Computed example of a mutant assay.
Amino acid sequence: SEKTAAAEGKVGELRRDPFAMLPFCGYNMGDYMAHWIDVAKDKDQSKLPKIYYVNWFRKNDAGKFVWPGFGENSRVLKWIVERLDGTAEGVETPIGVLPTRDALDTKGLELADDDLDFLLTVDKEVWREEAALVPEHLNTFGEHTPKELWDEYRALVQRLG
């Protein structure tokens, strides 16, 4: 997400922190993340909350937002709920599971096939560029950065090739 007036730094600058909590956390964010990792250890993984990352703001080559947004976001949320129920299809990608073309309800949308393909495609080169920026962020937490985050980072880089 982008920084706001509430966050330190330049407004509009890209930020990499969970739930935009960094300016409001009263202790080292690495410890905060370690806490949530510890909460999940030794638990039945099927009963833990599922986390989905959604980028509503992908732009095409002309700089125009591709997803129509706002009320149409419920279509992606519908896919997530159906996925959790085990009724929606998904395809594995280096960054996680994405909806298949048929699993995402686009009925009534004026969304070109090319735009849908763009939204459902993972550009590995773009993601490699993004991944290269992650260590600088994780290093801001110093020795407090949980090993598990570094493990996840290395696994992402490996999946991206």
Rank of each mutant, 00 (worst) to 15 (best):
T4W: 08
A5W: 07
A6D: 08
G9V: 01
G12S: 05
L14G: 08
R15P: 10
R15Q: 13
R16N: 02
P18Y: 00
A20P: 05
A20M: 01
L22Y: 08
P23H: 08
F24I: 00
F24Q: 02
N28T: 01
N28R: 03
M29K: 12
G30S: 07
D31E: 15
H35S: 10
H35N: 11
I37M: 06
D38R: 15
A40G: 13
D42G: 12
D42A: 10
D42E: 08
K43V: 10
D44E: 10
Q45W: 01
L48H: 04
L48R: 11
I51V: 12
Y52F: 06
Y53A: 05
Y53L: 05
N55E: 14
W56T: 14
N60F: 06
N60M: 11
N60L: 07
D61C: 10
D61F: 08
D61N: 15
G69H: 05
F70W: 14
F70Y: 12
G71L: 14
E72D: 14
E72S: 14
N73L: 08
R75F: 04
R75I: 04
V76L: 10
V76E: 05
V76D: 08
L77P: 15
L77T: 13
L77Y: 06
K78R: 15
V81Q: 13
E82Q: 15
L84Y: 11
T87G: 02
T87L: 03
T87V: 09
E92K: 14
G96M: 02
G96S: 02
T100I: 13
D102R: 15
D102Y: 09
A103N: 14
D105V: 12
T106D: 07
T106N: 13
E110V: 13
L111V: 11
L111G: 09
A112F: 06
L116E: 06
D117C: 02
F118C: 03
L120R: 13
V122Q: 06
K124H: 05
E125S: 04
V126D: 06
V126G: 04
W127D: 00
R128A: 01
E130R: 11
A132I: 03
A132G: 09
A132V: 08
A132D: 05
L133S: 04
L133R: 07
P135S: 07
L138H: 09
N139T: 00
F141M: 11
P146Q: 06
P146F: 01
E148R: 10
L149Q: 09
L149H: 09
L149P: 11
L149I: 07
D151H: 04
E152P: 06
Y153I: 01
R154L: 01
L156M: 04
V157K: 03
V157W: 00
V157C: 02
R159P: 02
